[in-house]
């Protein structure tokens, strides 16, 4: 069965390759926004050199890494699964001789790999060229980052899947999707680096799963996480992933038992 899922992922990777111009436009947009945030950060630091041990360079790196991770872990308008439910196409996916959850999981893995290579990496390089970021980490940190990043991809897919299958129960769920994405982006550290938040809010952010989407991998790469914190974060994020995947499977099973297909 494994080769099948591998080919699903590969096909989805290839499908993305077709949208070359869209990706270039997206790259330019992400770079533009990354630059805007960078100018704001530099201007803020005029009044104060460092905050809790984080310097301008740290925060600039944080910002660009968040921009680089954005399309990998939290693509903004991802309605792919929801749309198949709305149009009724979901029936053909459900009748494929494979597990519905793992089918979408593999598809999204392929997409994530594409965005890592063709969006994430180029964005960080652009940021380095524009704002002289350099590369923050040594090889051990990089290795831990890769693990944290894989976990981020899994969490991202599970979360995306969850707010999309709402469509089995609510047909027009776009408002929910915006809400889900906005809250996740805020607590992932995409709007503001989480260490700038007041203590109680930072504490809350660290126990939520969104911490694992951006903030945790980025902080690992910046070398700001102690081994003890790291262990704790990995355990908690692993629990979140397993929990979310279980909920994912449970809801899918419930939905498909009584599925009433939209459309004709």
């Amino acid at each position: 069965m494994f080769p099948f899922y591998f080919h699903v992922a590969l096909a989805s990777f290839r499908r993305q390759l077709a949208y070359r111009w869209a990706n270039i436009a997206g790259l330019i947009t992400n770079t533009f926004f990354g630059s805007l945030f960078s100018f704001v950060i530099i201007a803020l630091h005029h009044a104060r050199q460092s905050v809790d041990g984080y310097t301008v360079t740290d925060t600039l790196r944080y910002t660009w890494l968040a921009q680089a991770l954005l399309m990998v872990v939290m693509p903004f308008a991802w309605y792919d699964l929801m749309n198949t439910i709305r149009t009724g196409e979901v029936v053909s996916d459900l009748s494929k001789p494979c597990d519905f959850c793992w089918y979408w999981f593999s598809r999204e893995l392929g997409r994530s790999l594409y965005y890592t290579l063709f969006r994430g990496v180029p964005i960080y390089i652009a940021g380095t060229l524009l704002f002289n970021l350099g590369f923050p980490a040594g090889s051990l940190q990089l290795l831990i980052f890769v693990l944290a990043f894989l976990l981020a991809i899994v969490l991202g897919i599970a979360y995306r899947y969850l707010y999309n299958i709402i469509a089995f129960w609510i047909v027009e769920a776009r408002a929910m999707v915006w809400l889900a994405v906005t809250v996740a982006l805020f607590f992932a550290g995409s709007y503001i680096p989480l260490y700038f938040l007041p203590g109680w809010l930072y504490g809350l952010a660290q126990v939520l799963p969104f911490n694992g989407l951006m903030n945790f991998p980025i902080q690992v790469l910046l070398g700001k996480v102690s081994p003890a914190q790291m262990g704790w974060a990995f355990v908690s994020l692993l629990c979140w992933s397993v929990g979310m995947i279980l909920v994912m499977r449970f809801l899918t099973a419930r939905a498909t038992r009584r599925v009433i297909v939209q459309g004709g």
């Binding site: 704001v40 005029h46 009044a47 104060r48 905050v51 809790d52 503001i192 700038f196 938040l197 007041p198």
Partner: peptide, 12 residues
């Protein structure tokens, strides 16, 4: 708004 908790001002 939260940016203005750690930072007093934005380029004056």
């Amino acid at each position: 708004l939260l940016y203005f908790i750690p930072f007093p001002s934005l380029l004056d």
